[in-house]
Design a protein around this nucleic acid. Sequence first.
DNA 1: CAAACGGCGTTCCGTAAGGGAACTCTAATT
DNA 2: AATTAGAGTTCCCTTACGGAACGCCGTTTG
Lengths: 150, 150
Amino acid sequence: MQRTNFGDITCSIARTLHVIGEPWSPLILRDVWAGLTRFDQIQADLGISRKVLTERLNHLVEHGVLTRRPYDRRPRHEYVLTDKGSDLVDVLMVMAGWGDRWLSGKAGPPVLYRHHGCGEISGAGLLCTRCGKQMHATDVDLLPGPGAAT
Amino acid sequence: MQRTNFGDITCSIARTLHVIGEPWSPLILRDVWAGLTRFDQIQADLGISRKVLTERLNHLVEHGVLTRRPYDRRPRHEYVLTDKGSDLVDVLMVMAGWGDRWLSGKAGPPVLYRHHGCGEISGAGLLCTRCGKQMHATDVDLLPGPGAAT
DNA sequence: CAAACGGCGTTCCGTAAGGGAACTCTAATT
DNA sequence: AATTAGAGTTCCCTTACGGAACGCCGTTTG
């Protein structure tokens, strides 16, 4: 085996990386979370190679993070987060929070999060920066922020 | 450019991936967090190629996540987390929490976290599962858990 | 009913990046 | 002077990403 299999390392971080550690996987998950659920939508949004997108989607489905759901009688389907997958999006929210704090510069964060619980705009993270309560991936709406692409 | 540069995407998740998205980077960060701060220690622990370890360490230092600190008059140094880096370890704690919940099986989590705030053993995450208060990477000690390697 | 279309992959090739082992460099120790 | 230890560096081989073209399969259109 050439590339090391992180799944074999006795470490929950390594095991998690085995599921979403490959290039593009977290961004694919982000897209599905944000409502881009179809192959061509994701492909166009990310500009990812179709080959790699196929591989990643299969991998995420195999590991129970996404499911394929038919949306037509034709063989057409969209990708949906499972519970396991929604829980994983919490990792993305923390990553987004770190990126907002340390990397977004004076333009400000590209995305804002509205907390369903209190209705206010919060910073990215697992605690609402307004009401202080726990906030999960399923508890927010995404809105364009000041640093959003033009 | 062959591999896509995630840093150019207007997305805090993508920007964060630009810093720690490459293979091994999160595990290197984990090692430094856990107290393995020298080149050969990390190399032996992870079994990573020395070439790649060099590249990753330089990358993490360039991006202000780690600093090189001399620990001897000789050109010997160890790698230390910066504030930016400690903040980033929060991402790892959430990843560890997800891995513990969904991937560790009946063996149980390989690592336990003792919260400095209350002194109790907590699950991995950003909230202490015992006292409910916020818990950051700098607020915990790592202990071997039931699923630890033999 | 043949042709075009849309969604979803699959195939192919060129290049970059990881794996592994051997080698280098430098300052300290014996 | 020879040895040791830490920290890279170099070289070669193999794998995997990027990009573009191609294939498949039901549906719509004329």
